[in-house]
Computed example of a mutant assay.
Amino acid sequence: MRFRHRDEIWRDFPDLVPGVLYTEAITPTADVAAAVARHTATALDRLARTGESAMPEIQAWRRAFAAQGVKPTQYRCASESLLRRLRREGTLPALHPLVDLCNAVSVAYAIPVAVIDLDRVAGDLEVGYASGAETYETFGGTVEQPDPREVVFVDGEGFAHARRWTNRQSGRSAIGPSTTRALIVAEALHGTAADDVPKLLDTLAGALRAAWATDPAPAILTAAHPGFDTAA
């Protein structure tokens, strides 16, 4: 499978720094509690000093959403939504070890992190503007069609695996008990993203090695080198 951002995304968002990581041998029984607690504590410490809306990582995504015609206080990037929940409740829900780990790292860095079950993706996966003909499945099982020009993750059969870019993933490719292969995508637009995204990937790669004894393959994408190929 090949993952890439289309040229139109690089043209309209030249500050984008995407990091991707492919991992195998995922099981639902790994113990990530210590790592989740550590990264959650980092996020809580930062939240005690500043609200999520004031963080440069979140402000950059708010500007990007506004540029797409999406109201940023109605549809928030995933890391902002998680930080808001963490601030209100003091913890994040336990869903699956891989999701829990990625959510904890996401709030620690205030950067959206998507986690996609690759066995639920048809063909290649691209980030680009929707035509309006794509099919999106919610976590509740209902079907929606993205708005034309909305940024989506779309596969070779027209299934949208995320709506409004970093706002909401699809239930179709959500991580579950049967997941063994996953693509992790972290995307940032703020001023220090070129330093922060590689650090985030290194953090996740180390945690994956510790929890699943897997050897994840990370990469930073650029407009000159926009594609990432997973192992066969």
Score class of each variant (00 low, 15 high):
Asp196Lys: 04
Gln68Gly: 01
Glu80Asn: 05
Asp202Leu: 13
Arg46Asp: 09
Val151Asp: 02
Ile116Val: 14
Cys77Ser: 14
Pro93Val: 13
Arg38Ile: 10
Leu118Trp: 06
Thr135Asn: 07
Glu52Cys: 14
Ala41Lys: 12
Thr179Gly: 04
Ala110Asn: 05
Ala54Pro: 09
Ala60Arg: 02
Gly123Pro: 02
Ala114Thr: 09
Gln68Asn: 04
Ala133Leu: 13
Thr166Gln: 11
Phe159Lys: 06
Thr179Ile: 05
Asp229Trp: 02
Asp202Glu: 15
Ala48Met: 06
Leu83Lys: 00
Ala160Lys: 07
Ala110Gln: 08
Thr27Asp: 14
Ala194Arg: 15
Leu204Asn: 06
Tyr129Pro: 10
Gly123Trp: 10
Lys71Leu: 13
Trp212Tyr: 13
Ala223Pro: 01
Ala37Thr: 14
Pro97Glu: 14
Val115Thr: 13
Ala174Ile: 03
Gln74Pro: 00
Leu98Cys: 01
Glu134Met: 11
Cys77Arg: 00
Gln169Thr: 10
Thr222Gly: 02
Pro218Trp: 01
Gly141Trp: 03
Arg46Ile: 04
Arg2Ala: 11
Ala66Pro: 00
Val197His: 08
Ala25Thr: 10
His225Gln: 14
Pro18His: 01
Asp124Ile: 06
Leu82Ala: 11
Asp124Lys: 05
Cys102Leu: 06
Ile220Leu: 15
Thr42Tyr: 07
Glu157Asn: 12
Leu16Lys: 01
Thr214Pro: 10
Gly191Tyr: 08
Ala94Ile: 15
Ala34Ser: 11
Leu98Thr: 01
Glu137Ile: 15
Ala213Tyr: 07
Asp202Ala: 15
Arg4Val: 06
Leu95Phe: 07
Ala66Lys: 07
Glu150Ala: 15
Ser81Lys: 13
Arg38Glu: 15
Tyr22Gly: 01
Ala224Gln: 13
Val36Asp: 07
Val152Gln: 05
Phe139Met: 12
Arg149Asp: 12
Asp117Gln: 05
Ala130Phe: 07
Arg172Lys: 09
Ile175Met: 04
Ala110Gly: 10
Ser170Pro: 12
Pro97Asp: 10
Glu150Cys: 14
Ala48Arg: 14
Leu92Ala: 04
Gly140Ser: 14
Tyr75Ser: 12
Gln74Gly: 00
Ala110Thr: 04
Gln68His: 04
Leu92Asp: 05
Ala35Val: 13
Glu137Tyr: 14
Arg76Ser: 01
Gln74His: 09
